[in-house]
Design a protein around this nucleic acid. Sequence first.
DNA 1: CGCCCCGTTGAACGCGCGTTTAGTCTTTGA
DNA 2: TCAAAGACTAAACGCGCGTTCAACGGGGCG
Lengths: 234, 234
Amino acid sequence: MRSTDRPSDAGTDPLDGASATRARIRDAAVLRFARDGFTVGLRQIAEDAGVTAPLIVHYFGSKDGLRAACDTHVLAMIREAKGKALVPNDTNALLMSLASVEESAPLVGYALRSLQAGGRLARDFVDQFAADAEVYIAEAVAAGEMRPSRDEKARARYLTVQGLGALLLDVTLNPPAEPTDLLAMIDGYMQRMALPTVEIFTDGLLTNRRMLDAYLLYVGDPPPGGDGSETPQS
Amino acid sequence: MRSTDRPSDAGTDPLDGASATRARIRDAAVLRFARDGFTVGLRQIAEDAGVTAPLIVHYFGSKDGLRAACDTHVLAMIREAKGKALVPNDTNALLMSLASVEESAPLVGYALRSLQAGGRLARDFVDQFAADAEVYIAEAVAAGEMRPSRDEKARARYLTVQGLGALLLDVTLNPPAEPTDLLAMIDGYMQRMALPTVEIFTDGLLTNRRMLDAYLLYVGDPPPGGDGSETPQS
DNA sequence: CGCCCCGTTGAACGCGCGTTTAGTCTTTGA
DNA sequence: TCAAAGACTAAACGCGCGTTCAACGGGGCG
């Protein structure tokens, strides 16, 4: 049934002859994984791509191979898109500007699924964002816009994990029906969180330095790393 | 094989005769779900509980019924344990003091799995924590320890979602091998995050009020709720 | 022409899943 | 004492999964 219509009907594809099918399968998989999670069956992905399940195995070896290919592709695409994005101050703002490109919205959905599931891509993804945040924060500190921290690396990671984790949790609690709604979801999330974020970032939360002083007294100089064995109150 | 040894060998169980089996299955399920996630098979849970899979269906109707029973039980247990916990200031500190009870550590693991998967329990869980945070924050504000917010409800939810989401993401990225390690995991997480948290809570992040003023100028008074249609920068 | 190559398919395999069925024990109570 | 009730199990069913197998068809090439 599907074997007669050639992939040439997808007119925008540059490569028509050889293994554009491979890319078509990969793209369909990214979309499906983003939409339904990683438990979706190969047959469903195959149907989306207009092929059959064994062909996916033929190209990618196994379902895990397909996942790995998707991971690599998504990470590369996001890495590339991040270079293009102007003023990627905030993690969430970046994700949103990324999701609003409409073409790369599935990438964001896939990345969120990946964060939800864990694994290598998730770790790379967070590490990459934390590293980016670190240089951005360093610039802001140098420009006198942000206060310096006693442990810049830890603060960059803190802000990244907090931002990504909160977004992930919010998306998990209010899952969008369609990946198209993901943009609206992230947008609504940012609207709800904007005021508390800016408030705390501007004035802080506490009225005195007791907690900070107690913590600084409790541990030594922070940058050296894991020295204290017990846990202070946060 | 298992049919000969009675459940009486689990000497600590108060109810020995009737349907202590039901509770035993439920507890085994909570532990297994916490350990391996919700994709684990009924047969595995049955083996842990020393019964067979059909008996689980006999007692709980279906696997979803078992999940619902676990959800209800875990939510009730955590609710109860929260009442006992003294000074439950921080969400994470509360979770940690809860996890350190050793007996209720699986409950925390199950709750985290549930947050990861979404669903009703996850929503109730977050809502409950946000509500608790709101009253605690109100007390701190009244005591002059915390600054007031222009939208207390939003800030309470913000802090809750940030805290839980960050913890969830961290656990997902560095999954503990055993639920026993969960305590060490949360402990390590808090150590890594403690300094940035206290720093930002004390002094804030920004050096000037430009962002806050721009936001306040952009929207009207916040408490009324969804009025602005576009998204300001966060 | 005849050959091979290779993209692609339909059919099937084995597995583990949740669930159903039928039945065997053990307890209980009229 | 005998039957009803309930706890519990072994076996099996149907399903969907990822994967394997054998084969078909058409294009390039000797």
